[in-house]
Deep mutational scan, measured.
Amino acid sequence: MATKAVCVLKGDGPVQGIINFEQKESNGPVKVWGSIKGLTEGLHGFHVHEFGDNTAGCTSAGPHFNPLSRKHGGPKDEERHVGDLGNVTADKDGVADVSIEDSVISLSGDHCIIGRTLVVHEKADDLGKGGNEESTKTGNAGSRLACGVIGIAQ
């Protein structure tokens, strides 16, 4: 089992970053940390998408990683996509320092995120509470600013 993974985020604009993942036990939580720069100040949706395909930019990554066919939600919700990591918060300089621990994603097994795409979005994720159909699919997080395929790390 891989215990570490990394993702280099890039987009068409100024947004870029490096996100690290570490899972010490196969059924334990995954620590997610790193930094994203070039964002507007505020909240930005942060999700693992189904495919590791960036051939047409971030759009070819498909929908959120959702092997259990659930509705979109927040990272602490029972009803959520596996890939729903909530929001990252950018400061006035456009930098989001990421520090998350998640017990639904994994670096092995059915919820493995390796080979899938991590995406940072234009807007805040409403965590499935926006009151419309799009909220239950995407959290109304808007366009995909930057993305990268999650790969095994040393």
Rank of each mutant, 00 (worst) to 15 (best):
T3L: 12
V6G: 02
V6L: 14
V6M: 00
C7H: 01
C7S: 09
V8G: 04
V8Y: 13
L9W: 00
K10N: 12
G11K: 02
P14G: 15
V15N: 02
V15E: 15
V15L: 08
V15I: 15
I18F: 08
I18A: 04
N20I: 08
N20K: 11
F21N: 04
E22S: 08
E22N: 05
E22Y: 07
E22K: 06
Q23S: 06
Q23P: 04
Q23K: 10
Q23Y: 03
K24S: 08
K24Y: 10
K24W: 06
K24A: 11
E25F: 07
S26V: 15
S26P: 02
K31W: 13
V32P: 02
W33M: 10
I36M: 05
K37G: 13
G38D: 04
G38I: 02
G38C: 02
G38T: 00
L39T: 02
T40F: 05
E41D: 09
G42R: 01
L43T: 15
H44C: 02
H44V: 01
H44D: 04
F46E: 02
H47C: 01
H49Q: 10
H49G: 05
N54W: 10
N54D: 13
A56F: 12
A56M: 05
C58W: 08
T59K: 08
A61W: 08
A61T: 08
G62L: 09
P63E: 07
P63L: 10
P63H: 14
N66T: 08
P67H: 07
P67K: 13
L68H: 10
L68A: 07
R70M: 09
R70Y: 11
K71G: 09
H72V: 04
G73E: 07
G74L: 06
P75Q: 15
E78N: 14
H81N: 13
V82K: 02
V82M: 08
V82C: 06
G83V: 13
D84C: 07
L85Y: 00
L85K: 00
G86K: 00
N87D: 07
N87E: 04
V88K: 01
T89W: 15
T89R: 07
G94A: 04
G94W: 01
A96E: 03
D97T: 12
V98M: 06
S99Q: 12
I100T: 11
E101T: 04
E101A: 07
D102I: 04
D102T: 14
V104R: 11
L107M: 04
L107D: 00
L107I: 10
S108A: 07
G109R: 04
D110F: 11
D110M: 01
D110H: 14
H111M: 15
C112P: 07
I114W: 00
I114D: 00
I114K: 01
I114F: 04
R116V: 02
L118N: 00
V120Y: 01
V120D: 01
E122Y: 07
K123I: 14
K123H: 08
A124T: 10
A124P: 12
D125P: 06
D126K: 03
D126H: 12
L127K: 12
L127A: 09
G130F: 06
G130L: 08
G131A: 15
G131C: 03
N132P: 08
N132H: 10
T136A: 09
T138K: 12
T138P: 15
G139Q: 06
G142D: 06
G142E: 07
G142T: 03
R144V: 14
L145P: 01
C147I: 14
G148F: 00
V149K: 10
A153L: 14
